[in-house]
Every structure is written in C-alpha cells, then in structure tokens.
Design a protein around this nucleic acid. Structure first.
Lengths: 104, 104
DNA sequence: TTGTATTATTGCACTAAGTGCTATAGTATA
DNA sequence: TATACTATAGCACTTAGTGCAATAATACAA
C-alpha cells in the first residue's frame, strides 16, 4: 500500500467514529471527512522532477528556493540519489497542479 | 543569517548576471527576479505549530495527512523534539497564510 | 573557435529529520 | 464509570537533508 494512502487511512481510522455522528456534522467532523477527499500524493521520479522544474524555467537554485530546500537536495532528487520527503513531495504535487507561483 | 534568506541569496547570487541583461527581460529572467519576491519562510516553534493546527480544528493525524507526513512527526514538532524540515516549514507557512484548504 | 559565465554534476562526510511501534496517559462523551 | 478518541513518551533505526569543493557540461558572446 502506498505510503500516502496509508496515511490517509490512518487518519480516517483514527477518526472513524465521526461517521457514527453522521447526523451532527459540525466543522470538526467536516474536517475529518475532508481527509477522504485529499488528493492522493503522487510520487515523482528523478526525470519527472526535472521536467517539472524545467517546464517552470527555473534553475535548480531557484527551484530550491521556492521549495525552501537546498540546491544540493534538488540536485540529488534529479539524479536519483535521494527521494523527496513526504512534505517535499506534497509541495511538488502542488507545483505540478497549480504551478510554481502557488509557492510565492 | 537565517537559512531561508541565505537560500534566497544563493539563488540570487547564482543568477546575478541576469541583472546585466536588464534590458532583455524574458520569462526566464523574470523567474530569477521572482525569487527576490519570495515570502521569507518563517520558522515555527512547537507552540505555534500546535496553534496552527488547533485553529484549523484538525487532529494531529488529520493535520499530518494534509502535510503528507506522519502523526509521529507532527507529534514531535509540537513537543519540540524535532523541528520541521525546509519543505515542511514551507507548507506550514502556506497553511498559516492561506489555511489548510490550500493543501487539498 | 576560443573564452567566459552560468548551470549542473559528483563525491564525501555529517547531522538531524522522519518513521514506526508500543505502551501509557489524558480527555471528552455516552 | 466505561468507552472511545486523542495525545504523549521513549526507543531504535533509516534515510533525507545539507554543505563544500572540485569538476564537467552547457550556453553565449567576442
């Protein structure tokens, strides 16, 4: 099972009891349901990350600044030496979906 | 010097030559200048992270799902055992500015 | 083509974040 | 009180993140 989905399921499971109160949906229970609607976070391989960056016409240094990480890190993502962490992957998904500007 | 600023400056420095072409501003050079306009990423301490989450009325598990990280990690952020990584901090800044919904 | 600047790569060494798990303790509610 | 739900604590481990310095590749101008 992909990690992102298991995280979603973990959150859902931990708040599953909310389903029983289906009659009384306040803001908090809404938030719990929202998790089910979270876009599953897609993994990005080295080439995809590079494509994402080049499409945005950004150098590795600039791209790194947007993501608040180091050039060295972007480097290693794109050469397959390291894989982006959970939050980093989330950011990459946001960029893929909405463009680099959303991180401004 | 705060890390986020040094990252910005690093990116600016590496592309400083772009300033010389000030006459010919195409999309690429624009992108380089944009980095100067990036909101400096603020650090969040344990209490601030918790406040951010509770204001969003999310449990640690739900909050973690939004950030695509683990409950254990949010746990440690809020108890001061660990500090969020660069990209994680960027996400927290986005949430602080635009609410949890931007991560949907 | 040759020189120059920008950008990207490689490799190393190290730090600390991320993770999972289990057991425990609050906390609210039925 | 009993029963969820939620949060905490502590452990052990993996691996992302980072910095730096040297090298290579790429693009661009003279």
């Amino acid at each position: 099972m992909p990690k992102s989905r298991s995280r979603i399921l973990a959150a859902v499971h931990q708040t599953a009891a909310g389903l029983r109160k289906a009659g009384v949906i306040d803001q908090q229970t809404m938030r719990e349901f929202d998790v089910l609607c979270l876009d599953p976070v897609k993994p990005f391989d080295a080439a995809q990350i590079r494509r994402l960056r080049t499409r945005a016409k950004a150098s590795q240094a600039v791209f790194a600044a947007y993501l608040n990480t180091s050039t060295s890190t972007v480097q290693k993502w794109e050469t397959g030496q390291k894989r982006p962490s959970g939050p980093a992957l989330k950011l990459l998904n946001l960029v893929a979906k909405n463009g680099l500007e959303v991180l401004t």
